[in-house]
Design a protein around this nucleic acid. Structure first.
Lengths: 153, 153
DNA sequence: CAGGCTGAGTTTGAAACTGAGACTTAGATC
DNA sequence: GATCTAAGTCTCAGTTTCAAACTCAGCCTG
């Protein structure tokens, strides 16, 4: 899966997963959010096969999540850097939600290895549901309403 | 991938994806959040192969995201229902974040097919970063700080 | 300028996973 | 006893991943 039909689904979750749902993709984005831009750095940090990394980066570029630009360091030939676009940077909330859930429900490591703070105030931030007035809504009080049937094909 | 090493990673995102990162899993959870509990209903709604659904549901039960309980309707034999645990229900924020991102960056369908509201006030809710005082922090102001190196294996 | 180094891939072949349909199982119903 | 249904399991062909080897282009060294 993770193919054609997902990109044209009427369900936004399905469309997102059509772009992000392949193995490694979200880890690549997590890595990019910490500043990684080069092919070899992604490969070394994640330990995935180069062919898979190549395909994933190209898919992300195709869907506007990352950009691929040539750059040249003095004394080196032209290379490429992969950077998150604005759309890609907005995935931080998805990565943050996954991290928060893992920290709470899959406890294992000594502690969190990624932290998030507001740049201006330096205060720690977390991911939450808020209503249109800006008040946090406890997840137990959030109701999901399906407004249309999702077609199987 | 999506195997052993992910479950023991020091990165919470990786551990989460070890449970949720296989194909179909998040769609199964989206479906469960709308109230689906039966094997055949998941299969019909998602259109996935029965063997994959069986494996995914069992994985989710194994990791405490869903429970599998016998129930009996009058005039029928015992069957099983799969329900989200508290941990599973907290994935609503992950699904919500994916939906929001898809709605914004992968526009396609006539409109959203899932909506979320606060049960008590009925107000529409969305997913956001908030700081420890409860104020929303715009995603552009959120900084990611990696506090430990993620080991490749 | 021959040879080596490095980043960024591509190629290759074995292993693992997925999809679709056939088959199984256990009660309920005819 | 034969049939129906939900919930799976089995089988096998096709796809995807993994790991290692290989390619390619420019830079650097002797």
């Amino acid at each position: 899966m993770t193919l054609k039909w997902m990109h044209t689904s009427s369900c936004a979750v399905t469309r997102s997963l059509g772009v992000l749902g392949e193995t490694w993709t979200i880890l690549i984005i997590r890595e990019a959010l910490t500043g990684t831009t080069r092919f070899a750095d992604f490969r070394d940090a994640l330990g995935l096969a180069a062919d898979v990394l190549s395909r994933r980066l190209n898919t992300l570029v195709d869907y506007g999540v990352m950009s691929k630009d040539a750059y040249q360091e003095p004394g080196s030939r032209t290379r490429f850097e992969y950077r998150l676009t604005d759309a890609g940077r907005e995935l931080e909330i998805v990565v943050g939600a996954l991290q928060q859930w893992g920290d709470k429900h899959l406890p294992y490591a000594a502690g969190p290895t990624i932290e998030r703070r507001a740049g201006r105030t330096g205060r720690p931030v977390h991911v939450a549901f808020i209503d249109d007035l800006g008040y946090e809504v406890p997840h137990a009080d959030v109701e999901t309403i399906q407004t249309d049937v999702y077609p199987a094909e």
